[in-house]
Nucleic acid binder design. Structure first.
Lengths: 339, 339
DNA sequence: CGATGCAATGTAAACCTTTACATCATCTGT
DNA sequence: ACAGATGATGTAAAGGTTTACATTGCATCG
């Protein structure tokens, strides 16, 4: 009794004294089967504990009702709350979500491609900022795909994410409104589309405030804590310090704050810092980090909605959905010049 | 050309001028097929771009070569590095890993049970500290299961995790060796097995140091940042302060540090704090948190190894694998009495 | 040379569903 | 009373794979 084979549709049919076809119909098209029969079938299902074998079902139907979400790093603080949005939306449409963890390993990527090729998932959601790997050859065979959180560089994959430009502009405008005129941008990049756009938001705000490009301090960085710390060192070398640091993301901002603290400065008295993303850690910094909040669950929800739409009707012209973020005011920005 | 159906084993067979049986053998038992045939088959596979349809394979074989990992919160900082250990070990044995995100929602748990019942996974790894839900009825039908990181309360599910008692004892001994005699334990619990054990390690160390139980300050807590902050307040109310805080985990320790800082104390001069887990954030606290490091990848690796073993030979007597953690010395512990 | 065994390959069943089509009974309208 | 429609159910094929068993050809041995 402990290890009996799971019940099949045939067991149910026998018990309910109908054919397997009727059982299948009773489950999926209840209105097509007489009420009395339906009851008998349901009873039989309850008795046997039958669950339909997803393998057989997918094989027959040619689809799995599963969406694969590919992420390089599950630990990314942005990931989990976006995932919740994705899952909720998927579930509402009868789809399940599988999470693929690539660890930025191309071999992993390839493994998951096999997964897709063998029909184990009907759609693909990319959290990675790039295609599963070398991106030609097999890419043509990819199922409907949507990029989320980070656009796929140099590709026409539809994208759902935050409005980076508008968000960054909000942040910069807040610094300006607080009285800052010397605002550094930390974390400039040539390759990451989202970061490019944040830079653009910064420029737009400063343009509007008539701050000459020559007066803007811009430091490169890859968006890590370490890069933020490094940027501070660099500015000290150059001996040109702003009154406020606008960081391309929260990780950079944390690095900047650490770097300034290590140099003995008192925040937010001596410098203002603003981030982007609103990672969980932002609340627990001293001072708590003022930042732009990613509308994570909205992003997740809409990305999944777009993907599911593309699934049934695969030629959407919609290429980008940008969601407007809010500024979260905490303690890391003050008026300048109190020093 | 864009949307052609994926190649099946039959396409390969036709092209290689053999039967489908031979193709299957060439893939899975290469030694059973003549060298020349094997070459022809491989060529045909390359040309057609054939990948075996996992659905059909699983259906036929009665197993999926997949392991389901159930976690209530993907965002848990402990989760991602354990996952890497799990994945690596699984992969080495030809298994894939699916991640299930329950969000502590019983309905989700149920959904994943269906997943298991329909043979979409051969084994179950619980990261949750409890069974997929109400834990009777369907539990009997569960595939081989192993709990990881947190034991399943009141159940005989095999468990792989850190040696809480030994780790906590190490921490307490380190405080003692640093000269502390008045050490509070923050985060006592009656229900969480791992936390109970940490408490025990604390007691063992203090027993050995001949510190009377009456002199030990023990404060309840559920292991959150908030609970740590609260515990500090409570101690201030009682007006009995230790020189060192031994916290049941890092989250609690962070709360304690925040609480002390909010009261205006200077750490680590005024108080010493030690944690348990070594979450990523521990490095970025000021002072950096001295703590006990979870041997995460080892835990992941061994948990998966145990599960896969149970898969083929399902009656292991081994019920618990405890892995010894190391102390990570940073800046949050100093000698007492400098105040 | 005939029997025996082995290596290489093929044939066909089985895994469990879904669903187009066939069948049958019953009802409607004339 | 009968043609035809309608509704409920059954039959059987198909989906792609693995594998037990059958077949074939060939070499080995007495």
């Amino acid at each position: 009794m402990s290890t009996q084979a799971p019940a099949t549709i045939e067991d149910v049919a026998r018990l309910a004294e109908v054919s397997i076809a009727t059982v299948s119909r009773a489950i999926h098209n209840p209105e097509k089967v007489a009420k009395s029969t339906r009851q008998r079938v349901n009873q039989a299902i309850a008795i046997t504990g039958y669950t339909t074998n997803a393998m057989a079902r997918s094989l027959r139907m040619g689809r799995s009702n599963m969406i694969l979400v590919l992420a390089p790093d599950i630990g990314d603080p942005n990931f989990s709350s976006i995932l919740i949005g994705l899952e909720n939306e998927a579930r509402a449409h009868g789809y399940g979500v599988l999470i693929g963890h690539t660890q930025n390993d191309p071999e992993r990527g390839l493994e998951y491609l096999k997964f897709l090729n063998s029909n184990q998932a009907d759609g693909l959601l990319l959290f990675t900022g790039h295609e599963p790997f070398g991106h030609q050859e097999m890419t043509q065979r990819l199922p409907p795909t949507v990029a989320v959180f980070e656009p796929v560089f140099g590709s026409r994959v539809p994208y759902v994410g935050v409005d980076d430009t508008a968000g960054a502009r909000k942040a910069a405008e807040y610094l300006l409104a607080s009285g800052h005129r010397s605002i550094a941008f930390i974390g400039d990049s040539k390759t990451r589309l989202g970061h490019l756009r944040r830079r653009k938001g910064y420029d737009l705000a400063l343009d509007a405030a008539r701050i000459a490009p020559a007066q803007r301090l811009v430091v490169d960085g890859e968006g890590t804590i370490e890069s933020g710390r490094l940027a501070v060192e660099q500015l000290f070398m150059r001996d040109t310090l702003p009154t406020a640091f606008m960081c391309v993301n929260d990780a950079t901002a944390i690095g900047v704050m650490n770097g300034l603290a290590a140099r003995g400065y008192d925040l937010p008295r001596d410098f203002s810092v603003i981030g982007f993303d609103d990672v969980p850690q932002a609340t627990y910094m001293t001072p708590a980090l003022t930042t732009v909040r990613q509308p994570r669950s909205a992003i997740g929800r809409q990305a999944m909605a777009l993907l599911l739409e593309n699934l049934t009707q695969p030629l959407t012209e919609q290429r980008e959905v940008l969601i407007m973020p809010d500024l979260v005011v905490r303690g890391s920005v003050t008026m300048p010049g109190k020093r």
